[in-house]
Design a protein around this nucleic acid. Structure first.
Lengths: 253, 253
DNA sequence: GTCTTGACTTGATCTTGGTCAAGGCGCAAC
DNA sequence: GTTGCGCCTTGACCAAGATCAAGTCAAGAC
Protein backbone atom coordinates (compact mmCIF):
# COMPACT_ATOMS: atom_id res chain seq x y z
CA UNK A 1 0.00 0.00 0.00
CA UNK A 2 2.94 2.30 -0.64
CA UNK A 3 3.00 5.20 -2.99
CA UNK A 4 3.36 2.87 -5.93
CA UNK A 5 2.01 -0.66 -5.92
CA UNK A 6 4.90 -3.08 -6.36
CA UNK A 7 2.83 -5.90 -7.79
CA UNK A 8 1.67 -4.08 -10.88
CA UNK A 9 3.48 -1.88 -13.34
CA UNK A 10 2.87 1.83 -13.48
CA UNK A 11 0.41 2.43 -16.25
CA UNK A 12 1.44 5.77 -17.53
CA UNK A 13 4.14 8.30 -18.28
CA UNK A 14 4.06 11.02 -15.63
CA UNK A 15 4.37 9.67 -12.11
CA UNK A 16 3.12 12.62 -10.14
CA UNK A 17 5.23 14.37 -7.54
CA UNK A 18 6.44 11.64 -5.24
CA UNK A 19 8.83 14.08 -3.60
CA UNK A 20 6.10 16.41 -2.35
CA UNK A 21 2.90 14.45 -2.03
CA UNK A 22 0.91 17.31 -0.44
CA UNK A 23 0.87 21.01 -1.07
CA UNK A 24 -1.49 23.93 -1.17
CA UNK A 25 -4.26 23.58 -3.72
CA UNK A 26 -3.98 25.53 -6.95
CA UNK A 27 -6.00 28.67 -6.56
CA UNK A 28 -9.74 28.05 -6.64
CA UNK A 29 -10.16 30.92 -9.12
CA UNK A 30 -8.37 28.99 -11.82
CA UNK A 31 -9.64 25.57 -10.76
CA UNK A 32 -10.95 23.55 -13.70
CA UNK A 33 -13.65 21.84 -11.66
CA UNK A 34 -14.93 24.82 -9.67
CA UNK A 35 -18.15 24.67 -11.69
CA UNK A 36 -18.67 21.03 -10.77
CA UNK A 37 -18.83 18.97 -7.62
CA UNK A 38 -18.93 20.47 -4.22
CA UNK A 39 -17.90 24.08 -4.79
CA UNK A 40 -20.72 25.13 -7.13
CA UNK A 41 -23.20 25.41 -4.30
CA UNK A 42 -21.06 27.65 -2.11
CA UNK A 43 -20.88 31.44 -2.05
CA UNK A 44 -17.42 33.08 -2.18
CA UNK A 45 -17.09 33.30 1.62
CA UNK A 46 -17.99 29.65 2.09
CA UNK A 47 -15.66 28.67 -0.74
CA UNK A 48 -12.86 30.53 1.01
CA UNK A 49 -13.55 28.63 4.26
CA UNK A 50 -13.49 25.34 2.42
CA UNK A 51 -10.24 26.33 0.81
CA UNK A 52 -8.54 26.92 4.15
CA UNK A 53 -8.78 23.18 4.89
CA UNK A 54 -8.07 21.93 1.35
CA UNK A 55 -4.79 20.41 0.27
CA UNK A 56 -3.74 19.00 -3.06
CA UNK A 57 -2.61 15.39 -3.33
CA UNK A 58 -1.23 13.53 -6.28
CA UNK A 59 -1.37 9.83 -7.04
CA UNK A 60 0.46 8.04 -9.79
CA UNK A 61 -1.27 5.70 -12.23
CA UNK A 62 -2.07 2.36 -10.62
CA UNK A 63 -1.65 3.68 -7.10
CA UNK A 64 -4.20 2.77 -4.44
CA UNK A 65 -5.89 5.88 -3.04
CA UNK A 66 -7.63 4.04 -0.22
CA UNK A 67 -8.75 0.53 0.72
CA UNK A 68 -11.98 -0.94 2.08
CA UNK A 69 -12.16 -1.65 5.83
CA UNK A 70 -9.53 0.98 6.57
CA UNK A 71 -10.23 4.24 8.42
CA UNK A 72 -11.21 7.00 6.04
CA UNK A 73 -8.04 8.80 4.97
CA UNK A 74 -8.97 10.57 1.77
CA UNK A 75 -12.07 12.63 1.01
CA UNK A 76 -12.06 15.08 -1.82
CA UNK A 77 -12.72 16.12 -5.38
CA UNK A 78 -10.97 14.75 -8.45
CA UNK A 79 -9.22 17.67 -10.14
CA UNK A 80 -7.26 15.78 -12.78
CA UNK A 81 -7.13 12.20 -13.98
CA UNK A 82 -9.51 9.26 -13.52
CA UNK A 83 -10.22 7.02 -10.53
CA UNK A 84 -11.88 3.62 -10.24
CA UNK A 85 -13.90 2.78 -7.17
CA UNK A 86 -14.46 -0.95 -6.60
CA UNK A 87 -15.46 -3.74 -4.24
CA UNK A 88 -13.81 -7.14 -3.87
CA UNK A 89 -14.93 -10.64 -2.90
CA UNK A 90 -12.60 -12.70 -0.69
CA UNK A 91 -11.48 -14.77 -3.69
CA UNK A 92 -10.50 -11.70 -5.71
CA UNK A 93 -13.53 -11.27 -7.94
CA UNK A 94 -13.91 -7.54 -8.52
CA UNK A 95 -16.82 -5.21 -9.21
CA UNK A 96 -16.08 -1.67 -10.26
CA UNK A 97 -18.81 0.49 -8.69
CA UNK A 98 -17.83 3.67 -10.45
CA UNK A 99 -15.30 5.53 -12.58
CA UNK A 100 -14.66 9.02 -11.27
CA UNK A 101 -13.57 11.98 -13.38
CA UNK A 102 -12.65 15.61 -12.69
CA UNK A 103 -15.39 17.22 -10.61
CA UNK A 104 -16.48 13.92 -9.04
CA UNK A 105 -16.27 13.36 -5.32
CA UNK A 106 -14.12 10.54 -3.88
CA UNK A 107 -14.62 8.96 -0.47
CA UNK A 108 -17.37 9.28 2.07
CA UNK A 109 -17.69 12.14 4.54
CA UNK A 110 -20.22 10.07 6.53
CA UNK A 111 -18.63 6.72 7.28
CA UNK A 112 -15.38 6.61 9.18
CA UNK A 113 -14.30 3.34 7.56
CA UNK A 114 -14.02 2.97 3.79
CA UNK A 115 -16.64 0.74 2.17
CA UNK A 116 -14.75 0.30 -1.07
CA UNK A 117 -11.35 0.65 -2.73
CA UNK A 118 -10.18 3.55 -4.88
CA UNK A 119 -7.33 3.42 -7.36
CA UNK A 120 -5.86 5.99 -9.72
CA UNK A 121 -6.23 4.94 -13.38
CA UNK A 122 -3.95 7.70 -14.60
CA UNK A 123 -1.93 10.34 -12.76
CA UNK A 124 -4.52 11.88 -10.46
CA UNK A 125 -4.77 15.17 -8.64
CA UNK A 126 -7.22 15.42 -5.78
CA UNK A 127 -8.41 18.41 -3.80
CA UNK A 128 -8.52 16.75 -0.38
CA UNK A 129 -10.31 17.75 2.83
CA UNK A 130 -9.22 16.31 6.20
CA UNK A 131 -11.98 14.39 7.98
CA UNK A 132 -12.59 16.32 11.21
CA UNK A 133 -12.42 19.86 9.77
CA UNK A 134 -14.72 18.81 6.96
CA UNK A 135 -17.25 17.49 9.49
CA UNK A 136 -17.12 20.83 11.22
CA UNK A 137 -17.62 22.79 8.00
CA UNK A 138 -20.54 20.56 7.05
CA UNK A 139 -22.17 21.33 10.38
CA UNK A 140 -21.50 25.06 9.88
CA UNK A 141 -22.42 25.48 6.23
CA UNK A 142 -25.87 24.12 5.35
CA UNK A 143 -25.24 24.62 1.63
CA UNK A 144 -22.25 22.28 1.86
CA UNK A 145 -24.21 19.51 3.51
CA UNK A 146 -27.08 20.02 1.10
CA UNK A 147 -24.72 19.71 -1.85
CA UNK A 148 -23.34 16.48 -0.38
CA UNK A 149 -26.89 15.19 -0.15
CA UNK A 150 -27.52 16.06 -3.79
CA UNK A 151 -24.34 14.26 -4.80
CA UNK A 152 -25.22 11.21 -2.72
CA UNK A 153 -28.68 10.99 -4.30
CA UNK A 154 -27.22 11.33 -7.77
CA UNK A 155 -24.73 8.57 -7.01
CA UNK A 156 -27.49 6.40 -5.57
CA UNK A 157 -29.60 6.75 -8.68
CA UNK A 158 -26.60 5.94 -10.85
CA UNK A 159 -25.85 2.85 -8.75
CA UNK A 160 -29.45 1.69 -9.09
CA UNK A 161 -29.39 2.30 -12.80
CA UNK A 162 -26.28 0.11 -12.86
CA UNK A 163 -28.08 -2.58 -10.88
CA UNK A 164 -30.61 -2.62 -13.74
CA UNK A 165 -27.74 -3.01 -16.20
CA UNK A 166 -26.01 -5.78 -14.23
CA UNK A 167 -29.18 -7.66 -13.39
CA UNK A 168 -31.13 -7.41 -16.61
CA UNK A 169 -29.19 -6.18 -19.65
CA UNK A 170 -27.43 -8.29 -22.29
CA UNK A 171 -23.71 -7.99 -23.02
CA UNK A 172 -24.42 -5.87 -26.07
CA UNK A 173 -26.68 -3.51 -24.14
CA UNK A 174 -24.14 -3.22 -21.33
CA UNK A 175 -21.29 -2.18 -23.60
CA UNK A 176 -23.52 0.24 -25.53
CA UNK A 177 -24.79 1.76 -22.27
CA UNK A 178 -21.23 2.16 -21.02
CA UNK A 179 -20.07 3.94 -24.15
CA UNK A 180 -23.18 6.15 -24.13
CA UNK A 181 -22.41 7.11 -20.56
CA UNK A 182 -18.85 8.14 -21.40
CA UNK A 183 -19.98 9.90 -24.56
CA UNK A 184 -22.69 11.89 -22.74
CA UNK A 185 -20.34 12.77 -19.91
CA UNK A 186 -17.71 14.00 -22.35
CA UNK A 187 -20.29 15.98 -24.28
CA UNK A 188 -21.73 17.58 -21.16
CA UNK A 189 -18.26 18.80 -20.35
CA UNK A 190 -17.87 20.55 -23.64
CA UNK A 191 -15.74 17.83 -25.19
CA UNK A 192 -17.31 17.41 -28.60
CA UNK A 193 -16.31 15.44 -31.71
CA UNK A 194 -12.84 13.81 -31.61
CA UNK A 195 -12.28 10.35 -30.13
CA UNK A 196 -12.96 9.65 -26.45
CA UNK A 197 -9.94 8.62 -24.46
CA UNK A 198 -10.71 5.62 -22.24
CA UNK A 199 -8.48 5.81 -19.16
CA UNK A 200 -9.34 2.23 -18.17
CA UNK A 201 -8.31 -1.05 -19.77
CA UNK A 202 -10.58 -3.87 -21.00
CA UNK A 203 -10.36 -5.74 -17.74
CA UNK A 204 -11.62 -2.74 -15.78
CA UNK A 205 -14.47 -2.23 -18.24
CA UNK A 206 -15.36 -5.91 -17.81
CA UNK A 207 -15.35 -5.52 -14.03
CA UNK A 208 -17.66 -2.53 -14.37
CA UNK A 209 -20.10 -4.32 -16.66
CA UNK A 210 -20.14 -7.72 -14.96
CA UNK A 211 -18.59 -9.38 -18.03
CA UNK A 212 -15.23 -10.92 -19.02
CA UNK A 213 -12.47 -9.22 -21.01
CA UNK A 214 -13.21 -11.46 -23.97
CA UNK A 215 -16.90 -10.57 -24.10
CA UNK A 216 -16.12 -6.86 -23.89
CA UNK A 217 -13.60 -7.23 -26.70
CA UNK A 218 -16.07 -9.13 -28.89
CA UNK A 219 -18.77 -6.50 -28.35
CA UNK A 220 -16.30 -3.74 -29.24
CA UNK A 221 -15.41 -5.63 -32.41
CA UNK A 222 -19.09 -5.95 -33.34
CA UNK A 223 -19.65 -2.21 -32.82
CA UNK A 224 -16.55 -1.50 -34.87
CA UNK A 225 -17.54 -3.73 -37.78
CA UNK A 226 -21.03 -2.23 -37.88
CA UNK A 227 -19.49 1.24 -38.12
CA UNK A 228 -21.04 2.55 -34.91
CA UNK A 229 -17.66 3.23 -33.33
CA UNK A 230 -14.09 3.53 -34.56
CA UNK A 231 -11.23 2.38 -32.37
CA UNK A 232 -7.64 3.47 -32.59
CA UNK A 233 -5.03 1.94 -30.35
CA UNK A 234 -7.73 0.38 -28.17
CA UNK A 235 -7.94 3.34 -25.77
CA UNK A 236 -9.24 5.96 -28.18
CA UNK A 237 -12.82 5.46 -29.29
CA UNK A 238 -14.79 7.58 -31.66
CA UNK A 239 -18.56 7.31 -31.55
CA UNK A 240 -19.70 7.53 -35.18
CA UNK A 241 -23.42 6.87 -34.72
CA UNK A 242 -24.49 8.07 -31.28
CA UNK A 243 -28.21 7.52 -32.00
CA UNK A 244 -27.67 3.86 -32.89
CA UNK A 245 -25.53 3.39 -29.80
CA UNK A 246 -28.23 4.94 -27.60
CA UNK A 247 -30.80 2.66 -29.18
CA UNK A 248 -28.70 -0.42 -28.50
CA UNK A 249 -28.22 0.66 -24.89
CA UNK A 250 -31.82 0.00 -23.92
CA UNK A 251 -32.95 -2.70 -26.32
CA UNK A 252 -30.84 -5.44 -27.86
CA UNK A 253 -30.70 -5.18 -31.66
CA UNK B 1 -52.81 3.86 -11.35
CA UNK B 2 -55.91 3.85 -9.13
CA UNK B 3 -55.97 2.76 -5.53
CA UNK B 4 -55.93 -0.83 -6.65
CA UNK B 5 -54.21 -1.97 -9.81
CA UNK B 6 -56.82 -3.56 -12.10
CA UNK B 7 -54.41 -5.74 -14.01
CA UNK B 8 -53.24 -7.80 -11.08
CA UNK B 9 -55.09 -9.35 -8.20
CA UNK B 10 -54.85 -7.99 -4.70
CA UNK B 11 -52.27 -10.03 -2.90
CA UNK B 12 -53.54 -9.99 0.58
CA UNK B 13 -56.48 -9.91 2.97
CA UNK B 14 -56.79 -6.43 4.44
CA UNK B 15 -57.20 -3.73 1.82
CA UNK B 16 -56.33 -0.63 3.81
CA UNK B 17 -58.75 2.20 4.29
CA UNK B 18 -59.94 3.12 0.84
CA UNK B 19 -62.64 5.34 2.32
CA UNK B 20 -60.17 7.66 4.09
CA UNK B 21 -56.82 7.46 2.35
CA UNK B 22 -55.17 10.17 4.46
CA UNK B 23 -55.44 11.02 8.12
CA UNK B 24 -53.39 12.26 10.99
CA UNK B 25 -50.44 10.05 11.85
CA UNK B 26 -50.71 7.81 14.87
CA UNK B 27 -49.05 9.53 17.74
CA UNK B 28 -45.27 9.58 17.45
CA UNK B 29 -44.99 8.49 21.06
CA UNK B 30 -46.40 5.07 20.25
CA UNK B 31 -44.83 4.83 16.77
CA UNK B 32 -43.12 1.49 16.17
CA UNK B 33 -40.42 2.95 13.98
CA UNK B 34 -39.57 6.06 16.01
CA UNK B 35 -36.24 4.46 16.89
CA UNK B 36 -35.41 3.95 13.20
CA UNK B 37 -35.28 6.06 10.10
CA UNK B 38 -35.51 9.79 10.14
CA UNK B 39 -36.85 10.56 13.62
CA UNK B 40 -33.99 9.09 15.66
CA UNK B 41 -31.75 12.04 14.99
CA UNK B 42 -34.22 14.71 16.04
CA UNK B 43 -34.78 16.22 19.47
CA UNK B 44 -38.38 16.39 20.79
CA UNK B 45 -38.97 19.92 19.50
CA UNK B 46 -37.73 19.03 16.02
CA UNK B 47 -39.78 15.84 16.07
CA UNK B 48 -42.84 17.89 16.90
CA UNK B 49 -42.18 20.21 13.95
CA UNK B 50 -41.81 17.22 11.66
CA UNK B 51 -45.05 15.84 12.99
CA UNK B 52 -47.00 18.95 12.09
CA UNK B 53 -46.45 18.22 8.40
CA UNK B 54 -46.79 14.41 8.60
CA UNK B 55 -49.83 12.51 7.43
CA UNK B 56 -50.53 8.82 7.39
CA UNK B 57 -51.28 7.07 4.12
CA UNK B 58 -52.30 3.50 3.49
CA UNK B 59 -51.75 1.42 0.39
CA UNK B 60 -53.23 -1.98 -0.30
CA UNK B 61 -51.13 -4.95 -1.38
CA UNK B 62 -50.11 -4.67 -5.02
CA UNK B 63 -50.88 -0.98 -5.21
CA UNK B 64 -48.43 1.37 -6.93
CA UNK B 65 -47.13 4.01 -4.51
CA UNK B 66 -45.40 6.06 -7.20
CA UNK B 67 -44.01 5.68 -10.71
CA UNK B 68 -40.75 6.67 -12.37
CA UNK B 69 -40.73 9.83 -14.49
CA UNK B 70 -43.65 11.29 -12.55
CA UNK B 71 -43.39 14.32 -10.25
CA UNK B 72 -42.54 13.27 -6.70
CA UNK B 73 -45.80 12.69 -4.85
CA UNK B 74 -44.84 10.50 -1.91
CA UNK B 75 -41.90 10.90 0.47
CA UNK B 76 -41.96 9.24 3.84
CA UNK B 77 -41.18 6.44 6.22
CA UNK B 78 -42.59 2.92 6.06
CA UNK B 79 -44.49 2.32 9.29
CA UNK B 80 -46.07 -1.03 8.46
CA UNK B 81 -45.80 -3.51 5.64
CA UNK B 82 -43.19 -3.97 2.90
CA UNK B 83 -42.45 -2.03 -0.27
CA UNK B 84 -40.50 -2.90 -3.39
CA UNK B 85 -38.59 -0.21 -5.24
CA UNK B 86 -37.73 -1.07 -8.84
CA UNK B 87 -36.61 0.13 -12.26
CA UNK B 88 -37.94 -1.00 -15.63
CA UNK B 89 -36.56 -1.32 -19.15
CA UNK B 90 -38.83 -0.29 -22.05
CA UNK B 91 -39.56 -3.95 -22.85
CA UNK B 92 -40.70 -4.72 -19.31
CA UNK B 93 -37.58 -6.30 -17.86
CA UNK B 94 -37.52 -5.38 -14.19
CA UNK B 95 -34.81 -4.86 -11.61
CA UNK B 96 -35.81 -4.55 -7.97
CA UNK B 97 -33.41 -2.03 -6.43
CA UNK B 98 -34.57 -2.52 -2.86
CA UNK B 99 -37.14 -3.99 -0.53
CA UNK B 100 -38.20 -1.51 2.14
CA UNK B 101 -39.43 -2.43 5.61
CA UNK B 102 -40.73 -0.48 8.63
CA UNK B 103 -38.29 2.30 9.45
CA UNK B 104 -37.00 2.58 5.88
CA UNK B 105 -37.40 5.78 3.90
CA UNK B 106 -39.35 5.81 0.60
CA UNK B 107 -38.92 8.37 -2.15
CA UNK B 108 -36.37 11.10 -2.68
CA UNK B 109 -36.47 14.50 -1.01
CA UNK B 110 -33.91 15.76 -3.50
CA UNK B 111 -35.20 15.01 -6.99
CA UNK B 112 -38.56 16.40 -8.04
CA UNK B 113 -39.20 13.56 -10.46
CA UNK B 114 -39.21 9.93 -9.36
CA UNK B 115 -36.28 7.84 -10.60
CA UNK B 116 -37.92 4.51 -9.85
CA UNK B 117 -41.22 2.79 -9.10
CA UNK B 118 -42.51 1.83 -5.66
CA UNK B 119 -45.19 -0.77 -5.00
CA UNK B 120 -46.76 -2.09 -1.81
CA UNK B 121 -46.04 -5.81 -1.33
CA UNK B 122 -48.51 -6.11 1.55
CA UNK B 123 -50.88 -3.60 3.12
CA UNK B 124 -48.60 -0.64 3.80
CA UNK B 125 -48.79 2.32 6.13
CA UNK B 126 -46.54 5.27 5.37
CA UNK B 127 -45.78 8.35 7.42
CA UNK B 128 -45.74 10.87 4.57
CA UNK B 129 -44.26 14.37 4.33
CA UNK B 130 -45.40 16.81 1.62
CA UNK B 131 -42.61 17.97 -0.65
CA UNK B 132 -42.37 21.73 -0.11
CA UNK B 133 -42.81 21.78 3.68
CA UNK B 134 -40.23 18.99 3.97
CA UNK B 135 -37.77 21.06 1.92
CA UNK B 136 -38.32 23.93 4.31
CA UNK B 137 -37.81 21.77 7.39
CA UNK B 138 -34.63 20.31 5.91
CA UNK B 139 -33.30 23.81 5.42
CA UNK B 140 -34.30 24.75 9.00
CA UNK B 141 -33.19 21.63 10.87
CA UNK B 142 -29.58 20.64 10.19
CA UNK B 143 -30.01 17.36 12.07
CA UNK B 144 -32.78 16.37 9.65
CA UNK B 145 -30.67 17.01 6.60
CA UNK B 146 -27.70 15.26 8.20
CA UNK B 147 -29.84 12.20 8.91
CA UNK B 148 -30.98 12.19 5.28
CA UNK B 149 -27.34 12.26 4.25
CA UNK B 150 -26.58 9.29 6.49
CA UNK B 151 -29.49 7.37 5.04
CA UNK B 152 -28.45 8.20 1.49
CA UNK B 153 -24.89 7.00 2.12
CA UNK B 154 -26.15 3.79 3.70
CA UNK B 155 -28.41 3.19 0.70
CA UNK B 156 -25.55 3.94 -1.67
CA UNK B 157 -23.28 1.42 0.00
CA UNK B 158 -26.05 -1.18 -0.09
CA UNK B 159 -26.64 -0.50 -3.79
CA UNK B 160 -22.92 -0.92 -4.50
CA UNK B 161 -22.82 -4.12 -2.48
CA UNK B 162 -25.69 -5.29 -4.68
CA UNK B 163 -23.75 -4.32 -7.81
CA UNK B 164 -21.08 -6.72 -6.58
CA UNK B 165 -23.72 -9.42 -6.17
CA UNK B 166 -25.32 -8.82 -9.58
CA UNK B 167 -22.05 -8.46 -11.43
CA UNK B 168 -19.92 -11.13 -9.84
CA UNK B 169 -21.76 -13.66 -7.66
CA UNK B 170 -23.16 -17.05 -8.72
CA UNK B 171 -26.85 -17.96 -8.39
CA UNK B 172 -26.15 -19.90 -5.21
CA UNK B 173 -24.25 -17.02 -3.64
CA UNK B 174 -26.97 -14.55 -4.63
CA UNK B 175 -29.74 -16.51 -2.96
CA UNK B 176 -27.65 -17.16 0.15
CA UNK B 177 -26.73 -13.46 0.37
CA UNK B 178 -30.37 -12.49 0.03
CA UNK B 179 -31.50 -14.82 2.82
CA UNK B 180 -28.63 -13.66 5.04
CA UNK B 181 -29.70 -10.07 4.49
CA UNK B 182 -33.29 -10.80 5.53
CA UNK B 183 -32.13 -12.92 8.44
CA UNK B 184 -29.76 -10.24 9.75
CA UNK B 185 -32.35 -7.52 9.30
CA UNK B 186 -34.93 -9.53 11.22
CA UNK B 187 -32.43 -10.31 13.95
CA UNK B 188 -31.35 -6.69 14.30
CA UNK B 189 -34.99 -5.80 14.87
CA UNK B 190 -35.35 -8.21 17.74
CA UNK B 191 -37.12 -10.84 15.69
CA UNK B 192 -35.28 -13.99 16.70
CA UNK B 193 -35.91 -17.67 16.09
CA UNK B 194 -39.17 -18.59 14.32
CA UNK B 195 -39.49 -18.59 10.53
CA UNK B 196 -38.96 -15.43 8.52
CA UNK B 197 -42.00 -14.25 6.62
CA UNK B 198 -41.10 -13.28 3.05
CA UNK B 199 -43.50 -10.58 1.90
CA UNK B 200 -42.40 -10.96 -1.72
CA UNK B 201 -42.97 -13.77 -4.21
CA UNK B 202 -40.39 -15.76 -6.19
CA UNK B 203 -40.64 -13.49 -9.18
CA UNK B 204 -39.77 -10.44 -7.10
CA UNK B 205 -36.86 -12.24 -5.49
CA UNK B 206 -35.66 -13.17 -8.98
CA UNK B 207 -35.93 -9.54 -10.09
CA UNK B 208 -33.89 -8.48 -7.06
CA UNK B 209 -31.16 -11.06 -7.67
CA UNK B 210 -30.90 -10.78 -11.45
CA UNK B 211 -32.10 -14.38 -11.89
CA UNK B 212 -35.23 -16.18 -13.12
CA UNK B 213 -38.02 -17.62 -10.97
CA UNK B 214 -36.90 -21.13 -11.83
CA UNK B 215 -33.32 -20.57 -10.75
CA UNK B 216 -34.44 -19.05 -7.45
CA UNK B 217 -36.73 -22.00 -6.87
CA UNK B 218 -33.98 -24.52 -7.64
CA UNK B 219 -31.57 -22.79 -5.25
CA UNK B 220 -34.23 -22.77 -2.52
CA UNK B 221 -34.74 -26.50 -3.09
CA UNK B 222 -31.01 -27.12 -2.81
CA UNK B 223 -30.81 -25.19 0.47
CA UNK B 224 -33.84 -27.09 1.72
CA UNK B 225 -32.47 -30.52 0.87
CA UNK B 226 -29.13 -29.70 2.49
CA UNK B 227 -30.96 -28.76 5.67
CA UNK B 228 -29.74 -25.16 5.73
CA UNK B 229 -33.26 -23.77 5.55
CA UNK B 230 -36.76 -25.12 6.10
CA UNK B 231 -39.62 -23.78 4.00
CA UNK B 232 -43.29 -23.91 4.88
CA UNK B 233 -45.89 -22.65 2.45
CA UNK B 234 -43.19 -20.99 0.31
CA UNK B 235 -43.39 -17.66 2.14
CA UNK B 236 -42.20 -18.76 5.57
CA UNK B 237 -38.53 -19.63 5.75
CA UNK B 238 -36.62 -20.83 8.74
CA UNK B 239 -32.86 -20.47 8.68
CA UNK B 240 -31.52 -23.64 10.33
CA UNK B 241 -27.79 -23.11 9.77
CA UNK B 242 -27.04 -19.38 9.62
CA UNK B 243 -23.26 -19.92 9.64
CA UNK B 244 -23.40 -22.18 6.57
CA UNK B 245 -25.68 -19.70 4.83
CA UNK B 246 -23.28 -16.86 5.58
CA UNK B 247 -20.41 -18.93 4.25
CA UNK B 248 -22.26 -19.64 1.02
CA UNK B 249 -23.06 -15.97 0.59
CA UNK B 250 -19.48 -15.00 -0.17
CA UNK B 251 -17.93 -18.12 -1.68
CA UNK B 252 -19.67 -20.79 -3.69
CA UNK B 253 -19.60 -24.21 -2.03
C1' DG C 1 16.77 -4.41 -36.82
C1' DT C 2 15.14 -8.59 -33.11
C1' DC C 3 13.32 -10.00 -28.74
C1' DT C 4 10.30 -9.56 -24.95
C1' DT C 5 6.28 -8.28 -22.71
C1' DG C 6 1.70 -7.10 -21.81
C1' DA C 7 -2.75 -5.95 -23.56
C1' DC C 8 -6.03 -7.02 -26.76
C1' DT C 9 -8.49 -10.00 -30.16
C1' DT C 10 -10.31 -14.16 -32.03
C1' DG C 11 -11.75 -18.93 -32.25
C1' DA C 12 -13.28 -23.44 -30.15
C1' DT C 13 -15.51 -25.47 -26.53
C1' DC C 14 -17.92 -25.75 -22.12
C1' DT C 15 -21.09 -24.43 -18.37
C1' DT C 16 -24.25 -21.85 -15.85
C1' DG C 17 -28.34 -20.29 -15.80
C1' DG C 18 -32.23 -19.27 -19.07
C1' DT C 19 -36.23 -21.04 -21.68
C1' DC C 20 -39.92 -24.05 -22.47
C1' DA C 21 -43.16 -27.20 -20.77
C1' DA C 22 -45.53 -30.13 -17.56
C1' DG C 23 -47.23 -31.01 -13.17
C1' DG C 24 -48.24 -30.15 -8.11
C1' DC C 25 -49.99 -27.60 -4.35
C1' DG C 26 -52.91 -24.48 -1.77
C1' DC C 27 -56.60 -21.60 -1.43
C1' DA C 28 -60.91 -19.49 -2.48
C1' DA C 29 -65.45 -19.82 -4.79
C1' DC C 30 -69.20 -22.53 -5.16
C1' DG D 1 -66.55 -32.17 -1.85
C1' DT D 2 -64.95 -30.04 -7.13
C1' DT D 3 -63.23 -26.54 -10.01
C1' DG D 4 -60.26 -22.98 -11.21
C1' DC D 5 -56.48 -20.10 -10.74
C1' DG D 6 -52.12 -18.45 -9.15
C1' DC D 7 -47.82 -19.61 -7.74
C1' DC D 8 -44.26 -22.67 -7.18
C1' DT D 9 -41.43 -26.71 -8.44
C1' DT D 10 -39.19 -29.86 -11.46
C1' DG D 11 -37.32 -31.71 -15.69
C1' DA D 12 -35.46 -31.44 -20.49
C1' DC D 13 -33.22 -28.70 -23.52
C1' DC D 14 -30.89 -24.46 -25.18
C1' DA D 15 -27.95 -20.42 -25.63
C1' DA D 16 -25.41 -16.40 -23.91
C1' DG D 17 -21.51 -15.68 -22.17
C1' DA D 18 -17.43 -17.88 -19.63
C1' DT D 19 -13.35 -20.46 -20.13
C1' DC D 20 -9.43 -22.13 -22.45
C1' DA D 21 -6.10 -21.50 -25.89
C1' DA D 22 -3.83 -19.38 -29.69
C1' DG D 23 -2.58 -15.61 -32.23
C1' DT D 24 -1.89 -10.40 -33.14
C1' DC D 25 -0.12 -6.01 -32.23
C1' DA D 26 2.44 -2.11 -30.29
C1' DA D 27 5.92 -0.37 -27.39
C1' DG D 28 10.12 -0.62 -25.10
C1' DA D 29 14.83 -2.87 -24.34
C1' DC D 30 18.85 -3.82 -26.45
Amino acid sequence: MGQVSETKPIRDHAIGDLARPRHEPHSCETCDVRSLGICVALDPVEQARLRTIATSRHFSAGETIFSAEEPVSVIGTVVKGAVKSYKLLPDGRQQVVGFLFPGDFVGSAIFNVNRCFAEALSPVELCVFPYAPLQKLMADIPALEHQMLKIAHGDLDLAQEWMLLLGRKTAQERVATFLCLLFDKARSRGYCGAPLDLPMNRSEIADYLGLTIETVSRQFSKLKSSGIIAVSGSHAIEVRKPEMLAQMAASSD
